[in-house]
Amino acid sequence: MAGEGFSWLLRGDLLGLSLAFGREMGVETLLHRMGADPTTVALRGQDADLNPDGYPSYREELGDLSYEEDGYVVRAGVYGDWAWAWEETSWQCVADAELIKRVSSGTVALTIFHNLDGSTALAYAEDGVVITVLDTLRDPLLRGVGGSDPERFRTFLPAVDDGFDDPLAMILTFVEQHFGAGIREADLMRHPVWSARLIPT
């Protein structure tokens, strides 16, 4: 379905991406584990025009910060079994090596990172232990480069040079198909959305 999963992200020019996912947890739990300032966690409407239910306005309360490198603003929601958090301009999902461990406590977690330079990374953790890290800066072919079981996904992921020349598209497709994680375009862009400001490490 259009606007589901990650397909909508791949239709345009995506400059950067910093995402965290935690399975079978509420959004507030995910934000807490990511280190959000609890005084900033709230369900907010996108703006006054798209906010008929009287939620606080995301654009008025956090909108200006979302364009600043040190703003540490995240929007968050739920897709299937997964809570997700989208970092606007920060990259705590990779800058804070402990984040994925905290998020995965008692469950599993994923982080996806894509930078302006084209580097792409995926990390997967179970119950506080990083299992697999894929990173095009360390291995352009996305063979495992870290974690307790670096090769965990080799049977599921085709090599980048085996017909998949876009690592980000490959990772997003894999995460959506293998784990059932994603983000609805409307949940990020139009519907009321959970948001907060992270406390940087």
Rank of each mutant, 00 (worst) to 15 (best):
residue 79 Y to N: 09
residue 46 Q to P: 07
residue 85 A to K: 06
residue 185 E to W: 09
residue 175 V to H: 03
residue 162 D to S: 02
residue 110 L to G: 03
residue 122 L to W: 11
residue 96 D to L: 05
residue 42 A to T: 07
residue 92 Q to M: 15
residue 143 R to Y: 08
residue 71 G to A: 08
residue 48 A to M: 08
residue 178 H to T: 06
residue 60 E to P: 06
residue 169 A to Y: 03
residue 170 M to T: 04
residue 140 P to L: 03
residue 173 T to V: 02
residue 174 F to G: 01
residue 132 T to K: 08
residue 160 V to M: 01
residue 166 D to N: 03
residue 48 A to C: 04
residue 136 T to W: 00
residue 156 F to N: 08
residue 89 T to H: 14
residue 59 R to G: 14
residue 109 A to G: 09
residue 181 A to D: 01
residue 59 R to A: 13
residue 52 P to E: 02
residue 131 I to Q: 12
residue 157 L to F: 01
residue 55 Y to F: 13
residue 153 F to P: 05
residue 126 E to L: 10
residue 176 E to P: 05
residue 143 R to Q: 12
residue 114 H to R: 08
residue 171 I to Q: 00
residue 127 D to C: 14
residue 152 R to E: 01
residue 130 V to C: 04
residue 69 E to Y: 15
residue 86 W to I: 07
residue 136 T to P: 04
residue 112 I to W: 02
residue 163 G to I: 00
residue 132 T to L: 09
residue 116 L to M: 15
residue 87 E to W: 11
residue 125 A to G: 12
residue 90 S to F: 12
residue 70 D to W: 15
residue 52 P to G: 04
residue 90 S to P: 08
residue 120 T to G: 04
residue 117 D to A: 13
residue 133 V to E: 07
residue 43 L to H: 11
residue 185 E to P: 13
residue 169 A to E: 07
residue 125 A to C: 07
residue 141 L to N: 11
residue 111 T to K: 10
residue 176 E to V: 02
residue 62 L to S: 09
residue 51 N to S: 08
residue 71 G to T: 09
residue 121 A to C: 13
residue 48 A to H: 06
residue 157 L to E: 00
residue 161 D to N: 05
residue 70 D to Q: 15
residue 110 L to Y: 04
residue 54 G to N: 02
residue 45 G to P: 06
residue 146 G to N: 00
residue 138 R to H: 14
residue 95 A to C: 15
residue 62 L to W: 07
residue 156 F to R: 08
residue 70 D to Y: 15
residue 110 L to W: 03
residue 146 G to L: 00
residue 99 L to A: 10
residue 156 F to L: 13
residue 107 T to Y: 07
residue 184 R to V: 09
residue 165 D to T: 03
residue 89 T to I: 11
residue 133 V to F: 07
residue 56 P to C: 06
residue 63 G to Q: 06
residue 160 V to R: 00
residue 159 A to N: 05
residue 147 G to H: 03
residue 126 E to S: 10
residue 134 L to K: 01
residue 111 T to V: 08
residue 55 Y to G: 03
residue 172 L to V: 03
residue 106 G to P: 08
residue 53 D to K: 11
residue 67 Y to N: 12
residue 89 T to M: 15
residue 88 E to N: 14
residue 93 C to H: 12
residue 78 V to S: 15
residue 124 Y to D: 04
residue 101 K to C: 12
residue 168 L to Y: 02
residue 144 G to A: 05
residue 64 D to F: 13
residue 143 R to E: 09
residue 104 S to N: 08
residue 111 T to L: 08
residue 62 L to Y: 13
